[in-house]
Simulated scan of single mutants.
Amino acid sequence: MKALLCHHHGPAEDLALAELPDPAPGPGEVVVAVSAAALNFFDTLIIRGRYQTRPAFPFSPCAECAGTIAAIGEGVTGWRIGERVAAWLGYGAAREKVVVPAQALVRVPDQLDDAQAAGLFVTYGTAMHGLIQRARLKAGETLAILGASGGAGLAAVEIGALLGGHVIACASSGEKLALAREHGAHEMIDYAAEDLRASLKRLTEGRGIDVLYDPVGGELAEAALRSMAWEGRYLVVGFAGGEIPKIPLNLLLLKGCDLRGVFWGEFVRREPAAHRRNMERLLDWAAGGHIRAHVHARIPVERWIEAYALIGERKAKGKVVLTF
């Protein structure tokens, strides 16, 4: 089988395609024939050794995938060969066949193709956990989202709107904001053309933001924090802007607001039942057409460098998916 491998830390150009033997499932496991493996921003970090997870070499990137069940291990019940499934692995999905614990599988609704299903876990799972468990977003509250046109941002736009939030999409161009509006955003801020803090103050009539969803970090963070409402919740999701900001803690005191970390992978490990409930709710929304799971690009695995560039240069509007 074909696999994209990282043999040492470095840029995407250092990855290599290789032929490996087909895997066999152990007890409680299945083999999934992968048709689509989704990239996330942390995939640009894990191959450089700059992510909290550091797999042993050689490893495959991509944390999530979709395809069909190709083999079933001893003791696995409730699944059959040929069923369409998706799974979150943490890493290792960028290969034609992967071994997955049966308990990690979810069925793919007919309304979603494999590229859409492959991108549901990390971005939508993170948005679900962030907005439900961490922010406890209430209907009618104001939710501002930085980087609202990327995979993480669009997921938060959709989930926030479905939960009844008043969604303010913040992005760096009119084209990106138009995409966020298509996915349910109510208000728009182009922070490349207008001052973020002043715009958030204007759109909230001076009251401030109840929940801020930030997968970007960098220079936008302090302006966003200064825009929080009393008892607002600032969700720290990631640092796609490249820089981890240094937050003036006096702002938390003056605003009476919270900084809350959103570490979805650890949430899955520590609270599997809550994660399962989130995913069941998410898949119900997907089956009902309430979630669009926008795919920016479907790129054959042989062109992985192109796919990584879209993520690393922040050009992706939605998910970037490697196909097999």
Results as ranks from 00 to 15, higher is better:
residue 36 A to Y: 10
residue 158 E to I: 02
residue 273 A to H: 11
residue 262 V to D: 06
residue 93 A to I: 04
residue 100 V to N: 09
residue 74 E to Q: 12
residue 242 G to H: 11
residue 310 L to H: 02
residue 29 E to Y: 11
residue 130 G to N: 10
residue 19 E to G: 11
residue 141 E to Y: 10
residue 223 A to S: 14
residue 143 L to F: 13
residue 210 D to T: 13
residue 227 S to M: 07
residue 304 W to K: 10
residue 252 L to A: 04
residue 64 E to K: 01
residue 177 L to H: 09
residue 177 L to E: 03
residue 99 V to G: 06
residue 81 I to G: 04
residue 206 G to C: 13
residue 108 V to A: 00
residue 304 W to H: 15
residue 117 A to N: 00
residue 1 M to S: 13
residue 66 A to N: 06
residue 144 A to K: 12
residue 111 Q to H: 00
residue 204 T to M: 14
residue 293 A to P: 00
residue 247 I to K: 07
residue 293 A to K: 01
residue 153 G to A: 09
residue 64 E to Y: 03
residue 175 E to N: 10
residue 281 R to Y: 03
residue 99 V to H: 11
residue 272 P to L: 07
residue 99 V to F: 09
residue 62 C to Y: 08
residue 301 V to Q: 02
residue 21 P to D: 08
residue 111 Q to G: 02
residue 157 V to Y: 01
residue 259 L to N: 04
residue 18 A to K: 14
residue 146 L to T: 13
residue 152 A to E: 01
residue 74 E to N: 06
residue 92 G to W: 03
residue 176 K to H: 08
residue 243 E to Q: 14
residue 111 Q to F: 00
residue 73 G to W: 13
residue 209 I to C: 11
residue 261 G to V: 11
residue 315 K to Q: 13
residue 148 A to P: 08
residue 270 R to D: 06
residue 235 L to A: 07
residue 208 G to P: 13
residue 9 H to E: 01
residue 304 W to P: 02
residue 111 Q to R: 07
residue 120 L to W: 06
residue 5 L to I: 07
residue 88 W to R: 06
residue 144 A to W: 11
residue 122 V to F: 01
residue 3 A to Q: 10
residue 255 K to I: 01
residue 312 G to E: 00
residue 178 A to Q: 14
residue 103 Q to K: 15
residue 32 V to W: 09
residue 231 E to Q: 15
residue 301 V to Y: 01
residue 219 E to F: 08
residue 146 L to G: 06
residue 113 D to A: 03
residue 185 A to I: 11
residue 129 H to A: 05
residue 226 R to H: 05
residue 136 R to S: 12
residue 189 I to T: 05
residue 209 I to G: 11
residue 272 P to R: 12
residue 270 R to E: 08
residue 27 P to C: 05
residue 5 L to N: 09
residue 64 E to G: 02
residue 53 T to I: 13
residue 301 V to C: 05
residue 315 K to N: 11
residue 137 L to I: 08
residue 272 P to M: 08
residue 229 A to Q: 09
residue 28 G to M: 13
residue 258 D to K: 13
residue 110 D to H: 12
residue 232 G to M: 07
residue 205 E to T: 15
residue 217 G to H: 14
residue 295 V to T: 08
residue 234 Y to S: 04
residue 54 R to E: 00
residue 59 F to A: 11
residue 42 F to M: 12
residue 321 V to I: 15
residue 195 D to F: 06
residue 8 H to A: 10
residue 272 P to I: 13
residue 19 E to S: 14
residue 148 A to N: 08
residue 160 G to N: 11
residue 299 I to W: 05
residue 305 I to R: 15
residue 36 A to P: 04
residue 60 S to E: 05
residue 111 Q to S: 07
residue 209 I to A: 10
residue 152 A to G: 03
residue 208 G to W: 15
residue 142 T to D: 03
residue 164 G to A: 04
residue 314 R to C: 00
residue 167 V to L: 06
residue 74 E to P: 00
residue 316 A to C: 07
residue 279 M to L: 14
residue 238 G to V: 03
residue 74 E to Y: 02
residue 237 V to E: 04
residue 77 T to E: 13
residue 155 A to S: 11
residue 74 E to D: 13
residue 290 H to R: 15
residue 199 S to Q: 08
residue 312 G to C: 01
residue 290 H to P: 00
residue 194 E to L: 02
residue 175 E to R: 12
residue 61 P to L: 00
residue 90 G to Y: 03
residue 132 I to C: 07
residue 43 D to C: 07
residue 31 V to H: 10
residue 175 E to S: 10
residue 171 A to I: 09
residue 59 F to H: 12
